[in-house]
């Protein structure tokens, strides 16, 4: 019993790292410009398909493929920002929600036309790893490692580079940043691009675990909402912690009740945290 508990907890936690990366993209965008990117799910799916295409058709190692996928994710984000978000950045929230949702529809629409909605998978195995009584696919371990790497890079970028500091300045006070000579629109576009880049990378990592379709981003988008709220909307590190919490819950809950109750607990917790501590479980009150 305990063995099983620990094993499913480990499973969940490893997955949680990758959830964290997906959510980090969302929370970064929210933190900088108070926009909830409803095209987040489709971008995750784009990451899945990008990795898949590079691997299946060009034979690129899926982990290596994530480098160009990240680049494409960045560019996609810049384009989305310029076309759909910039004009409504100061409008009421409904406008940016619907604008990004429109992008969601466009991506899903095109994606469905091109790939249909049949499931794909990346047929690449790293074998499995055994630690004591625990056995899990090595891809999970690599995924978790990748997630930590991405988080570390994001932090180094935000705290130690000029562009990163500009992002923090714009997030903190856009008008003041503009007064200091920081081109805030370009910084916003870059932040949006980084957010979608992380979504695309998360998608690539998830694609090495599970089969996926064009629509697979949706559930991860919803999970990202939950994670962001657990960790405090706008805090990248909070997203990683939130991701681990969600992964852990997903690992643990099925040992106590039917799997179908997982979303009830998740979303119940989500609403509860929003009500009681909208700044997240660890954020300042």
């Amino acid at each position: 019993m305990l063995d099983q508990l620990i094993s499913s907890l480990t499973d969940g936690l490893l997955l949680g790292f990758v959830y964290g990366v997906a959510a980090m993209g969302l929370t970064l965008i929210w933190g900088v410009m108070s926009v909830i990117n409803l095209a987040h799910g489709p971008v995750i799916a784009m990451g899945m398909f990008g990795t898949y295409l590079l691997f299946t058709h060009l034979g690129v190692n899926p982990y290596l493929a994530m480098v160009p996928v990240a680049g494409a994710g960045l560019i996609a984000g810049l384009v989305i920002y310029v076309i759909a978000v910039h004009r409504v950045i100061n409008a009421p929230h409904l406008s940016s929600l619907l604008a990004t949702f429109a992008v969601n529809m466009i991506i899903i629409g095109v994606g469905t036309a091109v790939f249909s909605t049949s499931p794909q998978n990346i047929n690449y195995s790293l074998g499995s790893v055994e630690v004591g009584f625990l056995t899990f696919p090595a891809s999970r371990l690599v995924g978790a490692f990748g997630a930590i790497l991405v988080t570390a890079c994001l932090y180094l970028f935000l705290y130690f580079t000029r562009a990163g500091k500009a992002i923090r300045a714009v997030a903190n006070n856009r008008m003041a940043a503009e007064l200091m000579g920081i081109p805030s629109s370009r910084v916003l576009a870059l932040s949006f691009g980084l957010g979608t880049m992380m979504a695309a990378v998360a998608g690539g990592l998830i694609a090495t675990f599970f089969p996926f379709t064009v629509l697979s981003g949706g559930p991860y988008e919803l999970k990202s909402f939950v994670i962001c709220v657990l960790g405090g909307l706008g805090h990248p590190l909070g997203a990683l912690v939130g991701g681990l919490m969600l992964g852990g819950l997903e690992g643990l809950i099925p040992t106590f009740m039917p799997v179908s109750w997982v979303p009830v607990v998740e979303f119940g917790l989500f609403v509860l945290v929003l009500l009681v501590r909208p700044s997240g479980l660890f954020g300042a009150k």
């Binding site: 108070s34 929230h93 009830v264």
Partner: peptide, 22 residues
Amino acid sequence: VLRLRGAYFALATIGINEAARA
């Protein structure tokens, strides 16, 4: 829920819908 403003309210209503479905 209506104490929440803006996007927080929007998110909460999404959560309520998903929780209800589940």
